[in-house]
Nucleic acid binder design. Structure first.
Lengths: 337, 337
DNA sequence: GTCCCAAGTGGGAGCGCTCCCAACGTCGAA
DNA sequence: TTCGACGTTGGGAGCGCTCCCACTTGGGAC
């Protein structure tokens, strides 16, 4: 805090006064708009420097009806889902792209009822120029709110149900297909899937991709062993799978956490990976590199996801239109398959 | 986007008109301030509901000179430092506390020059009511900027040099001391330190704590083996240590990443942990639980750090004062020591 | 009955900016 | 010489809210 008393920030009027021009001219000079003579433009610049003037963003926002900020809303029952390194990557990407568009980033973790209420108010009061919404669970209340919002909303990850007008997603089905095709190419003939939550589009699409690839290879798909994207659920699903189908020789896990869980169960059951059972994950998080054995997995470009979401809102805020975007995945082969 | 044309948001004037009261009364009713009769208060509430009125936060901000938002600024050369799960935890804590104080969270990753410039402008233009600043490196330019800011700035982690007026930190020295005391209690007599960056206060304080504890136990402290908090630097520092002092039997690593790196080097060198060398880390990240062997470490309350920073700015924004806060750490004993 | 005080009320002046628009040259073309 | 045309200029009206302040009322205390 400055301790030298209540010396207000200088205003545009004061700048104009010092520069000997009107407020209008000063404003135009500041936003380097046309219709300002070279001389006055320089006079304004001098005055700005001399006074240490910084425009008041709030006043500007009120006049232009633009806040200069985009919000990233992460919806979920539990605040700890945000602790997933996934979101940190999204933020890094989004932050960089927003910076280029000169938009600030507001972060809303809508976990509690109160949090959701605040987000709703943000939507209704136009507290941001645009929103990037990550609400993956089927029936998430914010999905509805988003539809009636008076601002562009870009979904991060396509939600379950009808496709929203704007979203960025990863090619979940394609990635899963590629993973399973790889297992098949290794000669595996009894390939099962450890699913993620089937109330998310990602969970469904990855199972769909698995199923398509298995059928295309002329094999029989296994029924979904559902988990919830956590390591322990992966371990449990693997145990259940082993009990029902002891002869399984290939496993596609819906994400790396579950893949690592499966690895743990397999190790405990005395199965060798990849000799007895080959395992492929999805995400390519850091833990896929450090697991034992290192996990073959489908890499998804998470930073790019954040970046493209941000670019999309930025474009929409500037009045341009955009169409949904699907980002490609790529298989990263390590030791587990 | 609403498709039903340019129907503006209703304003307070319209609410007042419908309720048959003046704008002033409507405003007071909305902010449930005194001096409003019960009848009119209810009339206003009715009008608000009927019109679907939501106050315009920008206009309010302009009038009150309060933005209703606090910024979390993460400074660093490289945007990827933010990918550290540490920050996700800080955010979860800060977000929850800010929600209670009814403040929005702005997130600024100041990695590029442009990013830093934007943060500076945020400071100078009072684009937020308060700032939580994480700028740990010595000589970070934002540290200076923060000093002349016209708003409260709470440091997350005490910076190197003179203590700022407001900060929240973890008891780094105390935690390190406890870790080393534990190693000593195990009968280790040649205890070395793998330091983190010594241009951060955390790095220095942890080494200080190590040194104090070693001296207090009547042993000889080792000179600092400096790393930079990464796993590979921990591995390298451990290798250097082993080369200089093959008889080391206890290691205090400045954080879990470095501790895991040390584990790796020790394994490669054929030393058994904890039999030959006992290792203690610092942070208690997820990887401390999953390393081999699981890492004994000093737990630091990261979410609480975020929460307390947020509470502190919220209090300061509301005109209350606060003093710096040091959060306690606690030793978590696992297999590595 | 008078007086005073407190609660209730609404008018109006901002907050600091943008942007429309009328007014003003100045200059080349008719 | 006259007349648009066009680049400049500044006045003024907002943007939607808060808050100060002057004003009205009703109900004790005397």
């Amino acid at each position: 805090m400055a301790e030298d008393g209540p010396r207000r920030q200088p205003t545009l009027d004061e700048v104009a006064g010092l520069a000997g021009v009107s407020r209008s001219v000063a404003s135009r000079a500041l936003n380097n708009a046309p219709h300002v003579s070279r001389a006055k433009r320089e006079a304004v610049e001098r005055a700005v420097r001399q006074l240490g003037y910084v425009p008041n963003p709030t006043a500007r926002a009120l006049a232009t009806r633009q806040t200069g900020a985009a919000a990233l809303v992460v919806s979920g029952e539990d605040p700890s889902i945000f602790a997933d390194p996934f979101f940190a990557q999204v933020i890094v990407g989004a932050s960089a792209a927003l910076e280029e568009a000169d938009l600030h980033l507001m972060l809303c973790l809508a976990a509690s009822d109160r949090g959701r209420k605040r987000v709703e108010e943000l939507f209704r009061s136009k507290g941001a120029d645009g929103v990037m919404l990550m609400a993956l669970r089927e029936g998430d209340p914010l999905t509805r709110t988003a539809e009636e919002a008076a601002m562009p909303v870009v979904f991060g990850g396509r939600p379950v149900g009808p496709a929203p007008r704007w979203y960025v997603d990863v090619d979940n089905a394609g990635g899963a297909r590629e993973a399973v095709e790889y297992l098949v190419s290794l000669g595996r003939t009894r390939v099962a899937a450890l699913c993620g939550r089937l109330d998310t589009e990602a969970g469904r699409a990855r199972y769909r991709g698995y199923r398509d690839a298995v059928l295309a290879a002329g094999l029989d798909p296994f029924p979904p062993q559902e988990g919830d994207f956590t390591e322990s659920s992966g371990a449990a699903a693997m145990a259940a799978l082993l009990a029902e189908h002891p002869d399984v020789d290939g496993v596609f896990a819906a994400n790396d956490n579950m893949g690592v869980g499966a690895l743990r169960t397999l190790g405990g059951a005395g199965r060798r990976v990849p000799d007895d059972v080959a395992v492929v994950g999805f995400d390519d998080l850091a833990l896929a590199r450090t697991s034992d054995p290192p996990l073959t997995t489908v890499h998804q470009p998470i930073q790019a996801l954040g970046r493209e979401m941000a670019r999309m809102v930025a474009a929409l805020v500037n009045g341009q239109d955009r169409t949904p975007l699907i980002l490609p995945t790529r298989l990263v082969v390590r030791a587990s398959a």
